[in-house]
């Protein structure tokens, strides 16, 4: 079952803009390695689920996967062969908004080469170009 919110304040949302870069969620916080997007996009709940399935098949019971994004935004659409007008369409699917720098998935409990292979499999399921990132230790 793809991800979606349990409760929402409004059933439908406007499309919005994806301006700027990620200022939050742009560092590896839970795992040791991460998958970071370099462009802004909508990631659908199905794509997130496909990434999770690909990773869990690859990792089996070895490491642990963290999903850092959640599809909060409903996307509505009109049915086929419908004339324009008559109001906004019904919600069809849910998306997560990602901006350049957002860390989408994280892995821990595996070595670097396994983490790279695992995150590359997830990257194939994503609609955005991604890069592999390490945890950065604070010096301050």
């Amino acid at each position: 079952m793809p991800l979606m919110p349990k409760r929402v304040k409004f059933r439908k949302s406007q499309r919005g803009k994806m301006k700027g870069n990620a200022t939050r969620g742009n560092t590896v916080a839970f795992g040791e390695y991460g998958l970071q997007t370099t462009t802004a996009s909508w990631i659908t709940a199905r794509q997130i689920e496909a990434g999770r399935v690909a990773a869990s098949h690859f990792l089996r019971r070895e490491g642990r996967l963290f999903i850092r994004i959640f599809p909060h935004k409903p996307v509505s659409g009109k049915p086929l062969e419908t004339r324009m007008g008559k109001g906004k369409g019904e919600p069809e699917y849910w998306v997560a908004i990602v901006k350049p720098g957002t860390v989408m998935f994280e892995v821990t409990g595996v070595d670097e080469s396994t983490a790279k292979k695992c995150l590359a499999r997830i990257a194939h399921k994503m609609p955005v170009p991604c890069r592999f990132v390490h945890r950065r230790h604070a010096v301050a």
């Binding site: 409760r7 929402v8 699917y93």
Partner: peptide, 14 residues
């Protein structure tokens, strides 16, 4: 479980 059809389930509106 078998994924439900998209749009079939909807969240509760507050």
């Amino acid at each position: 479980a078998a994924p439900a059809e998209e749009g079939a389930a909807e969240p509760e509106v507050i």
